[in-house]
Amino acid sequence: MARKRILITGAAGFLGSHLCDRFIADDYHVIGMDNLITGSLENIEHLFKLENFEFYHHDVSKFIHVAGELDYILHFASPASPIDYLKIPIQTLKVGSLGIHNCLGLARVKKARVLIASTSEVYGDPEVHPQTEEYWGNVNPIGPRGVYDEAKRFQEAITMAYHTFHGIETRIVRIFNTYGPRMRLNDGRVLPAFIGQALRGEDLTVFGDGSQTRSFCYVDDLVEGIVRLLHSDYAQPVNIGNPDEITIGEFAEEIIQLTGTTQKVIYKELPVNDPKQRQPEISKAKELLNWSPKIDRSEGLKRTYEYFKNLPEEKLYKKEHNNFEKYIN
């Protein structure tokens, strides 16, 4: 029997590369697509020798052509950290609008099922806690985070429109904070930022008073939830994340313990519209997908720390690679 064929956009990114690995392991023919604006070929170079993997260096905001049959499309192309989308706000909006439009158009032609990567950021700075899928959110569309939040909200809206109007098979995963190997060390997100500072002997920077909360899900658990959602028959959004909530201040102390460093925690002003609370309500995932996270934070952090600790020293001190300049338009 011929292998199922799946297109994964954002394939060279943190989550995209782990999804490539999973579907290769499940014996799919994987077509990775990435413009490498934030992704890195290092994340997927181990796949290039495989006959059931191919890579397209392409921007999904432009017309997409994939030859042959296509069974599934996973749209994971998007800047995902504040450092990225504040530097390239237009590109962030384009990949969440033109990019998803192109993916949905391709799905319609190929009769493929589409799963889109939405985010807990659609809830904004929430007034409901924990966040359920029925909560509509508290988002400032013109604030500094609006380019990302509203791109994802539009992405959900157009996906549902294609589902209801064109009958396209669609799935929407709302991803909460996820971590693991292949995260970019200096991309501005709290976990790699803390570990990077610890490894460099710097004080750990907490924005705000440390009372804001996050809930961290290990990447393997997230990927399992995504696979189960893809193969489900549920078209409405589903939260995938770990509901084990912790304050940022407590999390900084965990990182100090994990890394055995002696630095102190310093506090800086909280960025505008930064969410004060973030915790997924995952009853739907449990009921519909028989999914819940299996890897606790202590184990996941050990694995992630080992990855960062073994990076070449130049990566520890090097500023983030990017190809932003040619995409500013």
Rank of each mutant, 00 (worst) to 15 (best):
R3C: 05
R5S: 14
I6C: 12
L7V: 10
A11T: 06
A11W: 03
F14W: 10
H18A: 11
H18M: 05
C20I: 09
D21C: 04
Y28H: 13
Y28C: 08
H29L: 13
I31G: 05
D34L: 09
N35F: 04
I37K: 03
S40K: 15
S40L: 13
S40G: 05
E45L: 05
H46L: 00
L47M: 11
F48Y: 14
K49Y: 02
Y56E: 06
Y56V: 04
F63G: 01
I64V: 13
A67P: 00
E69I: 00
D71W: 03
Y72S: 02
L74F: 15
L74A: 08
A77T: 06
A80V: 13
P82A: 02
D84H: 14
D84K: 00
K87I: 01
L93I: 15
L93Y: 07
L98I: 04
L98M: 14
G99F: 07
I100W: 06
I100P: 05
I100L: 10
G105F: 03
L106A: 02
A107Q: 07
K111V: 02
I116V: 15
I116Y: 06
A117E: 02
S120L: 02
E121Y: 11
Y123C: 12
D125K: 11
H129E: 14
P130C: 10
Y135S: 08
W136M: 12
W136P: 00
W136Y: 07
W136C: 07
P141V: 07
P141E: 05
P141F: 11
R145S: 13
V147H: 08
K152W: 06
Q155D: 08
T159E: 01
Y162A: 11
H163T: 04
G167W: 04
I172Y: 02
I175Q: 06
T178K: 02
P181H: 04
P181A: 14
D187Y: 04
G188T: 03
L191G: 02
L191E: 03
I195W: 02
A198F: 06
E202K: 13
L204V: 07
T205R: 12
V206P: 06
G208R: 03
R214G: 05
S215H: 04
C217P: 02
V219E: 01
D220C: 01
E224L: 13
D233K: 15
D233H: 15
Q236F: 14
I240K: 06
E253C: 06
L258V: 11
G260P: 10
T261F: 07
L270S: 13
L270P: 01
V272W: 07
N273R: 03
N273Y: 11
N273A: 12
P275M: 09
Q277M: 12
P280E: 10
I282G: 02
E287H: 11
L289Q: 07
N290P: 01
K294N: 11
I295H: 04
E299D: 12
E299M: 09
G300S: 08
F308T: 08
E313T: 14
K318M: 11
E320N: 13
K326A: 07
